[in-house]
C-alpha cells in the first residue's frame, strides 16, 4: 500500500483511538485519589510514539513488560494487569 492508501484506510481509526486516549487521561486526572503504577506506565510509553524509528508498537510493548529473567518463587495470583508493577518487595 502507498502511504496515501494507508491514511485512507486507517486515519479515522487512529484519530478515534488518539482522542480516546486523550479523554482517558483527562478522566483519570480529574478523578480523586492516588494513581497506581499503571498511569505512570502509560505516561512513560507516550513519548515512544514520537520516535521516527520503526517498531513503535514493539517499543510500547517492551516498555509495559516485566524486564526480569528469573522465575518467580510463587504466583502472586493468576491475572496480569497490562503493566509491570516493578520488582516484588
Amino acid at each position: 500500500m502507498t502511504r496515501q492508501q494507508v491514511l485512507d484506510l486507517y486515519f479515522m481509526d487512529a484519530r478515534c483511538k488518539l482522542i480516546e486516549l486523550a479523554a482517558f487521561l483527562d478522566r483519570v486526572e480529574r478523578s480523586d485519589g492516588e494513581a497506581d503504577f499503571r498511569l505512570a506506565a502509560i505516561r512513560e510509553a507516550l513519548p515512544l510514539l514520537q520516535s521516527v524509528q520503526q517498531d513503535k508498537a514493539k517499543a510500547v510493548l517492551l516498555s509495559l513488560s516485566d524486564p526480569t529473567n528469573e522465575p518467580l518463587l510463587s504466583a502472586p495470583g493468576k491475572g496480569a494487569c497490562g503493566a509491570w508493577p516493578g520488582a516484588p518487595l
Partner: peptide
C-alpha cells in the same frame, strides 16, 4: 505464552 506484561519474560523462558 503469558498475558500482557508477563509475555516477554515467559516467551524467553
Amino acid at each position: 505464552t503469558p498475558h500482557l506484561e508477563d509475555k516477554l519474560k515467559g516467551t524467553k523462558l
